[in-house]
Design a binder for these strands. Structure first.
Lengths: 167, 167
DNA sequence: ATAAACTTTCAATAATTATTGAAAGTTTAA
DNA sequence: TTAAACTTTCAATAATTATTGAAAGTTTAT
């Protein structure tokens, strides 16, 4: 397999995996492109490489910046803006975990909390609703806490600390 | 908040959370409905409660069965089929984790493997592609392994074993 | 100040994904 | 058997989501 083919394969695979970490295809592909690029890329570069429009590129780069995954860099002597992504995979994982927790998991926990604390009128169906949403609330909360703990270990968290305990 | 409101809130919230665990809205809502139901439901019941068509219900129930989350139960004296979902949240988490690993993560690891093992032609960009896809491959693999280990502990895995180690 | 270089916005459109409903298929009771 | 009760399939349609591209906005050099 040649460089070009490998690169395309990587970008498209990572792009379609977007859903798994909760972002859309274009966003994931832009991130993938920057991730294997040896130097910051301009909007023009991204548009050309991925064959997507200026507007699309602009919007998705902005979103990636909102996530904290991509940052603008100033290239001296150049007028236009250049972009680069976090290159350390563990730092990336940390950012993604933190953002998904904040954007998606925390709000769900809040709803589960509300639902599971309705007044118990003694009926079987109310009891079941309370019991099951409570269980779900606890699971979600535990997973969220675990994820955040894992991901906050700055130094080789996965391999060094937790992982060995479980081997 | 009354039972009815709480129930609807739970179903719609859990439904929109579908993406987080990788299934579609209707699927997630059907599962949610069964999850808080005190007895198995027929297709008719599901259609009526969620206001969705027969075809949609049939297809999504099937998918839930493919995932191993929902099972048919025979209610004696009844002609039609009834459905129920796994009621234990930890078992649910285990099934979801196993399925997502198999369906999504494993295939990505395979691609990352292929891409990261292209021939190093000595160029900087090839080196970067190899380096970064290798890093991503290892991270993905570690997370996948960790997830499967966590989730295979049958007894109170979260709270009992791993969780305490990290507190 | 102004014009060139660049970025953002957003209404229109395209692409994708979910849903319907009716016909075809299957099972069961009599 | 057969016909009623039920489920599945799938082409058509609807709903949602992503993408475009051109106009409006911004910045910078002169």
């Amino acid at each position: 397999m040649e460089y070009k083919e490998a690169k395309e394969k990587f970008i498209s695979t990572w792009g379609s995996l977007g859903t798994l970490w909760g972002i859309n295809k274009a966003m994931a592909q832009i991130q993938a492109l920057l991730f294997i690029s040896t130097k910051p890329l301009s909007m023009e570069d991204v548009m050309e490489e991925l064959k997507i429009s200026r507007g699309n590129t602009s919007m998705n780069l902005r979103q990636l910046m909102d996530w904290g995954i991509v940052t603008k860099v100033l290239v001296s002597g150049e007028r236009k803006e250049f972009f680069t992504t976090e290159k350390d995979v563990q730092e990336l994982a940390r950012i993604v975990a933190k953002e998904r927790s904040r954007r998606e998991i925390k709000p769900v926990i809040k709803v589960l909390d509300e639902v599971s604390s309705i007044k118990d009128d003694g009926s079987e169906k109310t009891k079941e609703l309370i019991k099951q949403t409570k269980a779900l609330r606890e699971l979600t909360d535990d997973l969220d806490t675990l994820m955040n703990k894992l991901v906050n270990q700055k130094q080789n968290w996965l391999t060094k600390s937790v992982f060995k305990l479980m081997k």
